[in-house]
């Protein structure tokens, strides 16, 4: 058996371990799915009437709310990804602090498989979360005009983002001294969609904040998902989105690998 096939087999074992943990402790998954749903309901029903009035020139109230649910859902899907990867940081920190990694290091298993198991496990969990959140959004009036290709492309962008942020959170989980610290470390990832075009158009923001919102990584990702689901023109957003995902993924992977190898030295 070749080295890559050993690595694949070990990664599959670690993935199975992570999926078992998710099934055994469903409260974490429920919390990670619950948070975006709460925000979706909050923004559509409480703020939708007022914020929807400033989008697409519609009136406030019910018409504004109907318009706003289509505008805000892509941001909530992004928040779903951010919430799911927060769980990764926590589970990696648990592994690092509880001593299981030290045991794995004494075994004849591919080093990378420990981290890869976390990443693929999070990808599966996130896809499940995205399906649930999209279902709730459709129930409360989300009406995208995308065809199957648009849906698949949007899922692809969200999967790329999940992959990138998961590697970043694997690194954050390793740097955290405790599980509590690990749960707080990815907080900026939850905040960034708010400081982008996720909830309101950037041109409604004050100058300094608008500049930040237009150039931060989450804005082109949100705009890409929004355009793919609504059938609007993409512009250069998709290229920027995938570029950001690649940079974050590579940075997160290299950082994670460096930390993991340093720990074992």
């Amino acid at each position: 058996m070749s080295t890559p096939s050993y690595a694949l087999r070990d990664s599959a074992t670690m993935l199975r371990r992570n999926l078992r943990r998710m099934l055994r402790y469903p409260s974490m998954t429920l919390m990670l799915v619950g948070m975006p749903i709460v925000f979706l309901l909050l923004f559509v029903y409480v703020f939708g009437g007022a914020l929807g009035a400033g989008i697409g020139g519609v009136g406030g109230g019910a018409s504004g709310r109907a318009q706003y649910v289509n505008y805000v859902t892509p941001a909530i899907l992004l928040m779903t990804v951010s919430a799911a990867v927060q769980g990764t940081a926590v589970s990696v920190a648990m592994d690092m602090t509880e001593g299981i990694i030290a045991r794995f290091r004494t075994m004849a298993i591919a080093r990378v498989s420990v981290l890869t198991g976390h990443v693929i496990g999070t990808l599966i969990q996130t896809v499940f979360s995205l399906v649930v959140v999209t279902g709730v959004a459709l129930l409360i009036g989300f009406r995208p005009s995308a065809g199957p290709a648009g849906w698949l492309a949007a899922l692809g962008v969200l999967a790329a983002l999940t992959f990138a942020l998961t590697w970043l959170c694997v690194a954050l989980g390793q740097t955290s001294k405790s599980v509590e610290t690990a749960s707080n470390a990815p907080m900026p990832l939850v905040l960034l969609p708010f400081l982008g075009s996720g909830f309101v158009p950037t041109d409604s923001m004050p100058t300094g904040l608008r500049w930040f919102a237009e150039y931060q990584p989450f804005t082109p990702i949100i705009e890409s998902v929004r355009a793919l689901l609504s059938g609007a023109p993409l512009g250069n957003n998709l290229a920027l989105a995938l570029g950001w995902c690649a940079v974050i993924a590579l940075g997160g992977y290299l950082w994670s690998k460096k930390l993991f190898n340093r720990e074992s030295a």
Partner: peptide, 14 residues
């Protein structure tokens, strides 16, 4: 910060 800067469009609502 969020409400006063990002969501200040609420002032245009009904």
């Amino acid at each position: 910060v969020l409400f006063s800067q990002v969501f200040r469009g609420i002032a245009n609502g009904p």
